[in-house]
Simulated assay, not measured.
Amino acid sequence: MGLFDRLLRRTGAAQTPEALAPALLAHQAAQAGRDARALLDACAFVAVDTELTGFDPRRHALVSIGAVRLSGLSILPGASFSSLVRPPGAVPRDASLVHGLTASGLGDAPEEAAVLAAFLDFVGDAILVGHHIDLDMGFLNAASRRSLGGPLVAPCIDTLRLAMAFEEKRLVAGGRAGEAESLDYSLPALCRRYGLPEFAAHDARADALAAAYLFVFLARKCGRGRPLTLDGLWRAGRTWWR
Rank of each mutant, 00 (worst) to 15 (best):
L116T: 06
K169V: 13
V98Q: 14
R226K: 07
R146I: 13
G107H: 12
A21K: 08
L190Q: 08
S96Q: 10
S186C: 00
G138V: 11
L25A: 15
A36Y: 07
D231C: 13
H99T: 02
G107L: 04
M137Q: 11
A200W: 03
G195F: 07
G178K: 07
V129K: 07
L152W: 00
A47V: 05
V68Q: 09
L106D: 00
S186V: 07
E168S: 09
S186H: 07
L162K: 10
G124F: 10
G175V: 08
A109C: 11
L24V: 14
V85N: 08
T239D: 10
L218Y: 03
P77R: 00
T16D: 14
G33I: 09
V98K: 04
P188W: 08
M1R: 11
G130T: 04
S144G: 12
A143Q: 09
A211H: 09
R69Q: 13
A236K: 05
A177D: 05
I127R: 09
L140R: 04
Q15P: 02
L70H: 03
G72D: 05
L230Q: 01
L73M: 06
A90P: 10
A90W: 08
L101K: 10
D108V: 11
T102C: 10
H202L: 10
A42V: 06
G89F: 13
L171G: 02
G107I: 03
A177V: 02
L148V: 06
V48N: 00
R146H: 08
R226S: 15
G124I: 04
V68S: 09
L228H: 05
D94Y: 14
A163R: 07
L70V: 05
N141Q: 03
V172A: 06
L7A: 14
L128S: 13
E111T: 14
G175N: 02
H99G: 04
A90M: 12
A154Y: 01
G124D: 15
Q31V: 13
A236Y: 01
A126N: 11
L148M: 09
L230I: 08
T16R: 14
P77H: 04
A219Q: 04
V85M: 08
G237T: 02
A143R: 12
A219V: 06
A109T: 09
R6S: 14
A211W: 02
S83V: 03
L183P: 03
R170W: 04
F215L: 13
A180K: 11
G33C: 08
L228C: 11
D49V: 02
G195L: 12
T239V: 15
L230Y: 01
T11S: 07
V129W: 03
C43Q: 15
G66M: 03
R176S: 06
T229N: 06
L209Q: 12
D134P: 02
A117N: 07
S80L: 02
V68A: 03
I127T: 07
P87L: 09
A204T: 00
R235V: 12
D49P: 11
D125Q: 13
R192D: 14
G232A: 00
R161W: 00
D136H: 01
A126Q: 06
G175D: 09
V63E: 01
D231F: 01
R205K: 15
H202C: 07
H132M: 12
G225F: 14
